[in-house]
Computed example of a mutant assay.
Amino acid sequence: MDYTLEARGVSLRFGGVRALTDVSFGVREGELFSIIGPNGAGKTSIVNCISGRYKPTEGRLFHRGRDITGLPPNARATLGVGRTFQNLALFHHMSVLDNVMVGRHHLLK
């Protein structure tokens, strides 16, 4: 099965704290996929691994079959892999278009 995004055996440790242990999933093209759980379940940790903010202690991440585990966040953004935050901060002195352009700066030359 070909996945747009796949996690295989992803684990993340901070010293003795295990944030993620052997997390695996695959997301197909056009599929709606959700990560749910209580506080401390590791939702933000897996999103940070996917976006490249954290590098998994173990396991691999794939985008369209390509291993992206070692790619920096800016290279992942070029592939369309990134994250947003719940607390959106807009630049009030800028137009709507300019605010959108800020989020797409990595695509501009």
Rank of each mutant, 00 (worst) to 15 (best):
M1L: 10
M1E: 11
Y3H: 13
A7P: 03
A7D: 02
A7H: 02
A7M: 09
R8L: 09
G9F: 01
V10C: 08
V10A: 05
S11N: 12
L12C: 08
L12Q: 14
R13C: 15
R13N: 15
F14M: 10
G15D: 12
G16Y: 07
G16H: 10
R18T: 14
R18K: 13
A19V: 05
A19D: 05
L20F: 04
T21N: 14
V23Q: 05
S24G: 10
F25Q: 04
G26A: 13
G26F: 06
V27S: 01
V27E: 00
R28Q: 12
E29N: 10
E31H: 01
F33D: 01
F33N: 01
I35S: 01
I35R: 01
I35Y: 00
A41H: 02
G42D: 08
K43E: 00
K43T: 00
T44A: 07
S45V: 09
S45L: 10
V47I: 15
C49A: 15
C49W: 06
S51Y: 11
G52K: 03
R53W: 13
R53K: 13
Y54C: 11
Y54P: 05
K55T: 14
P56T: 10
T57E: 07
E58K: 12
R60V: 09
L61A: 11
F62E: 08
H63M: 07
R64V: 06
R64G: 07
I68Q: 12
I68S: 11
I68M: 13
I68H: 11
G70W: 01
G70K: 10
N74Q: 14
N74M: 09
N74P: 00
R76F: 11
R76N: 09
A77G: 04
T78F: 00
L79R: 05
L79T: 03
V81D: 04
G82H: 01
R83L: 02
T84R: 07
T84L: 05
L90N: 06
L90G: 04
L90K: 05
L90F: 10
L90H: 04
H92K: 13
S95M: 07
N99P: 02
M101W: 03
G103P: 02
R104D: 01
H106F: 13
L108S: 10
K109F: 00
